[in-house]
């Protein structure tokens, strides 16, 4: 019997609010990464050309692809950083346990993914504007997206970032259990890529990317990404139970 009963959910909310304030550096690094990606994108993300008899054409492409790719890597690394000792031990300013700490982390990473996803869409337009002003690119053709299409695109962007964040969280937790994983994971990943490409027909990354990228229904993409992310988070939580208790 206590004077004030505090539910776990209340602590999760408190920790989440605390993390939004104290992990603010995550958003600063996002800004730097996006500015960098925007400038890289200013050179265009592709070009094609051809001719047919007396007709020839050149097409330059500007897109938010590079910005999204950079932000997905940002999400991955950010999630790893959050699992480090310095960040984890900070949670003990509150009455807490590991589960509460994980849930508040996941909530924070969700919010970070949401903010990042929205700003990816916005910064692709900053890139377009800079292309018009700085690179003097005229006559840019673009798809006129409806509000629904914009919302779908932003949602998909957020989901892709969240997927990378969940992988990062899992990887980070593995490294926290044993430092050896910080060496084994990149070596294993590159090793798999090399093995996969030995027969000049790499399929590993393509198969994974197609599993998500070929999905034409947002609902199904949502189900796929949330399921895979949940799996990574559950694994991360289970792994963290093997870690030593803070004394």
């Amino acid at each position: 019997m206590y004077l004030a009963e505090v539910s776990s959910w209340e602590i999760v909310k408190k920790q989440y609010r605390y993390k939004l304030r104290s992990y603010f550096g995550v958003f600063s690094s996002l800004v730097v990464i996006q500015i960098l990606a925007t400038f890289f994108s200013l050179n265009g993300t592709g070009m094609s050309g051809g001719s047919s008899g007396t007709f020839s054409y050149n097409v330059n492409y500007y897109s938010g692809d590079l910005i999204l790719a950079f932000v997905m890597i940002w999400g991955f690394i950010t999630a790893i950083i959050i699992t480090t000792k310095a960040y984890r031990y900070d949670d003990y300013s509150f009455v807490t346990n590991r589960k509460i700490s994980h849930f508040s982390n996941i909530l924070f990473l969700m919010s970070a993914s949401l903010f990042a996803g929205i700003t990816v869409f916005l910064s692709s337009h900053l890139c377009r504007l800079l292309a018009v002003y700085v690179k003097h690119v005229d006559g840019i053709m673009m798809n006129q997206l409806t509000i629904t299409q914009i919302l779908k695109g932003v949602s998909a962007t957020v989901l892709y970032i969240f997927l990378f964040v969940s992988i990062g969280y899992f990887v980070g937790m593995l490294i926290q259990v044993n430092r050896l994983f910080s060496f084994l994971i990149p070596v294993g990943f590159i090793g798999f890529l090399i093995m996969d490409g030995l027969h000049n027909d790499p399929t590993l990354l393509q198969t994974i990317a197609l599993f998500f990228g070929s999905e034409a229904l947002l609902t199904l993409l949502f189900v796929k990404i949330i399921t895979v992310s949940a799996l990574f988070y559950v694994l991360a939580i289970l792994i963290s139970n093997r870690m030593e208790v803070r004394s």
Binding site: D65, G139, L145
Partner: peptide, 9 residues
Amino acid sequence: FTKFSEGFA
């Protein structure tokens, strides 16, 4: 000509 897209998502 130049084409612009918000990204693959």
